[in-house]
Nucleic acid binder design. Structure first.
Length: 787
DNA sequence: CCCGATTGCGTTTTT
DNA sequence: CGCAATCGGG
């Protein structure tokens, strides 16, 4: 028992062993937050204060939830699978599946991801003949999600003018459409679950009675609805409330733009009469200069709960600051520093390059690529979001529920079956006229269109029949083949990756069955793989008396579970792990991670802090928190850089260094002057700005941009700024440069993306308009420059 | 129906 | 500038 608590510091120990009362843990960056959270759970269970079934622990990401489960099972010999540990959406989904009838949902409801939601909205607007110039689908999507995240149904939304009233009406129409099709979007999962608890006394009381301890991770990121949900679930104000253990860091709140409400921390403290507020201020990650920089910076924020990180690690190295003439120069400087680090034995994956916006990655990628340094860029499409995977999933959804019009529309003519826009229009009109789904409306479409559509319906029915006795993986494989998707991509010239992804989907289905335990054991229970074996459930014969989901029969077939998994957990960004590579990502994406060496790039007014943040209330403070998050990612070495000129949206822009430099402790900084450049005006001490003027910083920024004299090399725009020196040398030797348009006798016109090697080894990476990207040896290929 | 051309847009993102 | 979505010709 003592081993659980061993190695905890005094603050951590106090938090872990708090009595069963509401508590707020202010956990600074690198202070062992996850450790405290999981140890608390383990400690509660081990001391018999609560059974595993009496705990609910909630996070924002699947990654965090998984991490918590893994750590917990390493601390205690218990099976965490059945425990209520998950994301807000995952736990809500679980409750809604168990109580689908009370929630007013079909048993097999599908979950729309953001893309699906947007296309559902587009479809809705088209059907209602709404001018999508005046009511852009994106805006409506934002409006709907925003309302839902405030807990507002259409009837609750105040509309003070005709324009807004229209939005509210469309919101109502959208909800009706979703209900009709048996689909639920992300925000709806939460709102529907909230309403289930709110309006169903028996269910609410059941869960309130059951969960004695509710633990919340990243509490500063909760939105209004999530907090309301937590209050309801914890039985706030009932006299028998669960002990809510909220862990968060107001200084790391960086998601206001998507609804996070830091105010929830203050509200929680007051509403729950929190008597235990514990600050975890001991940092186990960063060296002194880095931590001093973080503390100093964040002290410029006005509204804080107050916290100061400390470390035993010693000062370490100073923070290195670099001023570049251009974005290209910044990139080549980064490359040089990284080369040095690698030469000194630093592992590439321990080096991270952070930036405020994704667009900044391009120049840096290019520089890394030309130098042959392996790198990995985070972000982009995830596995279950890829078009070909979504197509396959749509077929699977139609097997489960043919009324899913979104799925129907996605694949009715993919691969093409001669069902064009005209036919679909007729079908949609019929569906509207008879107030039924697209699949049901097929019966009313006459002629050739009708027979093509009929054939599609029969295809789906055939799939349903044929797969009813198959395993999940067999089903997925059968569907990718029978749908014609495989054949389609085989004939497409760039289809190889897509085929591999479809094969990967089969593998994922296989792995899912194993992981989720839908194996022989489940077959013995009630053959969930066999839908025909579940007549009682198919008729919705759920035992209303049994409230505990664990006592309910398996309500999800493996297929429904897999589809749910696909929506709720979009999968990894990229499979290309493996190689030891430099990590590149936005500051947002870096939250929660740590690296030995960190570069924070593009520290310029307008970029970081971002110019748009001046428009929003509290915008600058959020940017500062973002910078705080960025700084605290670094363990041993931190680099900060900015460029005087930068190509943005194809245009050269001139920037002044970020105000954040003025908010860092001079004693912890070491300014690096680029060779051959004076840097007087940018030295420390000049241009100090008082923080009281922050409110008008947008205008200030322009003024400063003019006021600050350039004593260094003033960028003149065009070629000679920001060139990688090595590249320049190469360009001189080969007569070619990156970005140059060239003509090849066989491949035609192309553009040079990269140059490598020298002399006889010189090669160029060329993106040909017609033939894709190729590496060509310059000594062999006959290339002509085009101007 | 497919492909090339044109147009528009550009902060951050998980579920 | 680079991309994604949409448009229009063959």
């Amino acid at each position: 028992m003592s081993s659980l608590l061993a190695n905890l510091n005094a603050e951590q120990l106090a938090a872990v062993t708090l009595p069963d009362e509401p508590a707020l843990i202010l956990a600074g960056a690198g202070s062992g937050k996850t450790r405290v959270l999981t140890t608390r759970i383990a400690w509660l269970i081990q001391n018999g204060r609560v059974s595993p079934a009496g705990i609910l622990a909630v996070t924002f990401t699947n990654k965090a939830a998984k991490e918590m489960q893994t750590r917990l099972s390493s601390m205690l010999p218990i099976n965490t699978r059945g425990m209520w540990i998950g994301t807000f959406h995952g736990l809500c989904n679980r409750m809604l599946r168990a109580h689908f009838r009370d929630a007013g949902l079909p048993q097999t409801f599908a979950i729309l991801d953001s893309q699906d939601q947007l296309s559902a909205i587009k479809r809705l607007l088209k059907g209602l003949n709404v001018d999508d110039e005046k009511y852009p689908p994106k805006n409506l999507q934002y409006f709907i999600n925003n309302a839902k995240e405030q807990g507002l149904r259409p009837a609750d939304v105040e509309a003070n003018d005709d324009f807004n009233r229209r939005f509210v009406d469309l919101y109502a129409a959208y909800d009706e459409q979703c209900q009709r099709e048996g689909v639920v979007d992300f925000a709806e999962l939460l709102l529907r679950c909230y309403e289930l608890l709110r309006y169903n006394d028996a269910i609410r009381q059941h869960y309130q009675h059951r969960f004695r301890h509710v633990l919340v991770d990243e509490f500063q990121d909760t939105n209004v609805l999530q907090y309301q949900w937590l209050k309801l679930l914890a039985g706030y104000g009932s006299g028998n409330a669960a002990a809510v253990f909220a862990v968060g860091d107001d200084d790391q709140s960086i998601y206001a733009f998507r609804g996070a409400n830091v105010g929830n921390m203050r509200d929680f403290e007051q509403e729950f009469r929190v008597r235990h507020l514990i600050k975890l201020e001991q940092n186990y990650r960063s060296h002194g200069h880095i931590l001093d920089s973080a503390n100093h910076l964040i002290s410029h924020n006005a509204r804080r709960l107050g916290k100061n990180l400390r470390t035993d690690a010693g000062h370490g190295e100073p923070v290195r600051v670099f001023q570049a003439g251009s974005d290209g120069q910044e990139a080549s400087w980064i490359v040089e520093e990284i080369r040095d680090q690698i030469a000194q034995g630093m592992s590439r994956s321990e080096i991270a390059i952070l930036y405020r916006s994704n667009a900044q990655s391009r120049v840096i990628e290019h520089a890394l690529f030309s130098s042959g340094i392996p790198y990995r860029v985070y972000g982009g499409l995830r596995f279950f979001e890829r078009a070909e995977v979504k197509h396959a999933l749509a077929y699977l959804q139609l097997i489960e529920n043919p009324r899913n019009d979104a799925a129907f529309g996605r694949v009715v003519n993919f691969p093409t079956r001669g069902i064009g826009a005209k036919s679909l229009e007729v079908l949609q009109d019929a569906a509207r006229q008879y107030n039924c789904s697209l699949a049901e409306a097929v019966a009313y479409v006459p002629g050739k269109a009708g027979s093509s559509l009929g054939a599609f319906i029969r295809l789906i029915e055939q799939m349903r029949a044929e797969t009813s006795r198959m395993t999940l993986a067999q089903t997925v494989e059968y569907v990718t083949n029978t749908s014609g998707l495989m054949t389609h991509y085989q004939t497409e010239k760039e289809g190889q990756d897509r085929i591999e992804n479809l094969q990967e989907l089969v593998t994922a289905a296989q792995a899912f069955v194993v992981e989720e335990g839908y194996g022989l054991e489940a077959l013995g229970r009630m053959l969930p793989a066999n839908r025909d074996a579940m007549p009682a459930l198919a008729q919705g014969e759920q035992d209303q008396q049994v409230l505990d989901p664990e006592q309910l029969p398996v309500v999800m077939t493996p297929l429904v579970a897999f589809l749910t998994h696909a929506s709720l957990e979009a999968g990894d960004n990229q499979a290309q792990a493996g190689q030891d590579a430099v990590q590149m990502m936005t500051v947002h994406a870096a939250k929660g991670l740590e690296f030995n060496v960190v570069f924070i790039t593009g520290l310029e007014e307008g970029l970081f802090p971002h110019e748009n943040s001046a428009m929003e209330a509290d915008g600058l403070e959020e940017e500062r928190r973002l910078m705080y998050v960025a700084i605290t990612r670094a363990r041993a070495r931190l680099y900060l850089s900015f460029a005087q000129s930068r190509v943005l949206h194809g245009q050269m822009r001139y920037h002044v260094r970020s105000r954040f430099f003025e908010e860092l402790p001079e004693a912890s900084l070491k300014w690096i002057t680029p060779q051959g450049q004076a840097y007087g005006a940018y030295g420390s001490g000049s241009g100090r700005q008082s923080s009281e003027r922050e409110s008008a910083w947008g205008r200030d920024w322009f003024k400063r941009a003019e006021d600050v004299p350039y004593t260094g090399v003033k960028p003149t725009g065009g070629m000679d700024t920001g060139k990688n020196y090595a590249e320049e040398k190469r360009a001189a030797a080969t007569g070619f440069r990156v970005g140059q348009s060239v003509f090849h006798n066989k491949f035609g016109e192309g553009k040079i993306k990269a140059l490598e090697g020298e002399g006889a080894d010189a090669r160029a990476n060329i993106d040909f308009k017609r033939h894709g990207t190729k590496w060509l040896a310059l000594s062999v290929a006959k290339l002509d420059a085009i101007d």
